[in-house]
Amino acid sequence: MRHHPAPRPLGRRLLLGAGIVAVARPARAAWPDRPVRIVVPFPAGGGVDLTARMLAEAIAPGLGQPVVVENRSGAGGAIGVQAVAQAAPDGHALAMTSPSTVTIGPQLRPSPYDPFALVHVSRICTSPLLLVARRDLPERDLAALIARARANPATLRVANAGVGTVTHLAAELFNQRLGAGRFLHPSYRGTAPALTDVVAGNADLFFSDSSAWAAVEQGQVRLIAVTSAERWPRSPDTPAMQEAVPGLVAMNWYGMAGPPGLPDGIADRLAQMVAEALARPELRSRLEGIGFDAAPLARSAFTAFLRREAETWREVITRGNIRVE
């Protein structure tokens, strides 16, 4: 008696008949599936670090994973950004960026990464530089400063926070727009010592970051102008530099970037989360407390902004023959 095998289920007979073999594949893990690192390429306690910690706290609930801030400083920020540039592009390693790590630093010294190969997820915040003067400087406003610089070159000492910093390049841009040799440029090792010497009267002017605002409010220095394209809402009676020197715009900014190859889906989701966080009054208020304004720009707009910034500083660096020792 012949025994016939039991008939296969219809679905499987159709698959086999068509030459298709079903193979079970593990589902791809949803992102993020572990803590997300935000690398701050500068020491703890500075503006970049404080911004990163505020943002990490704001986006962690939406990610469903802890967001850990890791400080990896050195080489003008290059060490920390390089670590992220070399990380797996899976959205678990991100970097805080700034002019010194994207638009200025890589033009002054050999960079271990291509700043425009990074995926620039979102701009976070911006702040103008504040042109502050010692209290007893005879020139009380921007017009008087410009008149003196033109009539008596190399008599005004414009401090900076270090050769190649945005505070130095802003002063050099001012110098170039008025004519070479109009100012002296004493360099310091950071914002704090530069500002201290202006307060003490040992330097005349300083294109400071927004940390000088406290000294302005306390009457230790006078605010002459700001470098934003328009007047700064925090001090609406203070002129923007380009009201007297067209095109002199120099913004400090912080952003977020991921490694080359970061998937669009992850980058877009991060950009959306950053924008949503920056729309909350409490985070905007906290940023204002350290002198910054929430200014999200997502992906393509942010990258276009960075390319314009890099081109501006490339011209200043080339014309000024600026070198970092």
Rank of each mutant, 00 (worst) to 15 (best):
L205W: 12
P246W: 03
E230C: 08
L55V: 10
P233N: 00
G162M: 07
A27Q: 11
V158C: 15
V102E: 03
A143D: 06
V316R: 15
A52H: 02
L262V: 11
P296E: 12
A117E: 09
A147Y: 13
W232H: 00
A154D: 13
G64Q: 01
A44N: 11
V199M: 08
H185F: 13
S208W: 09
V245T: 09
V249P: 08
N71D: 01
A203R: 09
R280F: 12
S300H: 13
G80V: 15
A143C: 09
A170R: 10
T312H: 09
A60Y: 06
L287D: 04
I317A: 14
P41S: 00
P106G: 08
E139C: 02
L287M: 04
F206W: 14
A6K: 11
Q242K: 11
S208V: 07
A52Y: 01
W232M: 08
G265S: 14
D197V: 09
D264A: 11
M1T: 15
I79N: 11
L195Y: 02
M96W: 01
V39P: 12
T51H: 09
R157K: 12
M256Q: 02
F302Y: 03
N175Q: 05
A250G: 00
R157W: 05
P110V: 14
I317E: 01
G219A: 03
D197Y: 06
L94R: 05
W232I: 03
A144N: 07
E276L: 04
A52R: 10
A29L: 07
F305M: 15
G11N: 09
P138K: 13
H120I: 03
V39R: 03
S285R: 13
V132T: 05
Q176C: 08
L142F: 14
T167L: 09
T51D: 02
G320K: 04
